[in-house]
Design a protein around this nucleic acid. Structure first.
Lengths: 222, 222
DNA sequence: AAGGATATGTGACTTATATCACCGTAAATG
DNA sequence: CATTTACGGTGATATAAGTCACATATCCTT
């Protein structure tokens, strides 16, 4: 792991913290589609994302997956950063959407770095808060709005992270939103009629030129 | 504010932290029903709950309120504990369900105590994590289950905090769940038929003797 | 180019939830 | 005590979403 790359992704750390990260972390390469964390799996280390895009899901008893948010380069898994009781288990399911590079840091450094590096503690706090707010927005979407708005919200989040050309099937969207393919297909048709997007096989092209509102900008610290 | 009372409610702090809390905080008395924090209101201080029960809501554009969780004595508002950028505004609406006593601590102490007191930092982290998990459970309920299960989940949470005799109207429940009174009334009838509860005017008596599952025990640290 | 697999389109139907209209009853108020 | 107000019950209907069955379209493989 190159320290300059690290600095680009996490610009606000102290010099010595970069060095500690380099010397105590191990690099993990993950292939697109792989699962990197299962619900119930014990968390042994904190994960920083160096490259790629991770999708986080909540899972129900029957294994249905509900998309909650993305993690991209420069971000960290908030749940993995704070395990008060060691060997706590994961509440979420994490899958790599693209090939990804991760830094894995053993949990024992968390407590130490928290008190030693102000920048680390701020990073943890900011990460937590930022994820917390994403969860609140997700709750808004499902509590207050119908499938149409939820789909819109969902697509905007994908476009924000992946660009205007989404390589995704209707079935996958339906799974992420815990809906059914037919419903999604019909809603997409309506959006196509409104010229918001174009439907292709295996992909959707977002065309709405307006600035995207209500969706977090991809940031480094957050 | 009495230091022994504080120790009972927050048993894990360092001795000198109790003293700091006592000397830097102000006591607020809130009447049942009052709103103590509005969405968009700037957060100036961190709040510790000494007595009473607070309900937190998410609000939509039209002012509809969706219940997310309770805070009871010995807990703290996680969002108010971490405002990276000063003068951040509230994401939630908080109302006192009962008369309540709060400790209000100016935000500037947060950063200081975080590095100075290990117990404070652990408290903050644990609080955050605990609320985070409650949000995840809330998401489960609305994403994966129907109104019937959500109502059950809701009632169990209330019983957990308030005891078996809930002083609440069907309309209030409907508001909290973003549903409608008729729907709630009908579902309650069904639960009454199953002997889970008894419906009275202005109150519901929970009768299910089984241990409550899937609901957090009222804890001090959490 | 043919055949199979996968993705999408569409109508008919079911179900859960929301909404409307209206009523009876209990509690609160003057 | 009489009137008003809030709460809860109930049927009819509306609507959004999920389900089923099957058609069509596109891509991939050989």
């Amino acid at each position: 792991m190159d320290i300059n790359n690290l600095k680009l992704l996490f610009p606000d750390f102290e010099e010595s913290l970069y060095e500690e990260i380099i010397s105590h972390s191990t690099i993990k390469e993950i292939k697109a589609g792989e699962t990197l964390l299962r619900v119930g799996q014990p968390i042994r280390s904190t994960i920083l994302i160096i490259d790629g895009l991770i999708k986080l899901y909540r899972e129900d008893d029957e294994g249905k997956e509900f998309f909650i948010y993305h993690l991209n380069a420069g971000q960290a898994c908030s749940l993995s950063m704070v395990c008060a009781i060691k060997h706590e288990t994961s509440e979420v399911l994490a899958k790599a959407l693209t090939d990804a590079t991760l830094l894995s840091i053993p949990l024992e450094f968390m407590d130490r770095w928290m008190s030693k590096y102000k920048s680390w503690y701020q990073f943890v706090i900011t990460t937590y808060r930022s994820r917390f707010e994403e969860l609140l927005k997700t709750i808004d979407a499902i509590a207050f709005t119908g499938m149409d708005e939820r789909l819109e919200h969902y697509l905007k989040k994908q476009v924000e992270k992946l660009g205007n050309n989404l390589k995704i099937t209707h079935q996958e969207i339906a799974n992420d939103l815990n809906s059914s393919r037919e419903v999604i297909s019909r809603l997409l048709k309506k959006m196509e009629a409104k010229k918001w997007l174009t439907i292709h096989r295996n992909s959707i092209e977002w065309m709405q030129p307006q600035p995207l509102r209500g969706v977090e900008k991809p940031g480094f610290l957050y």
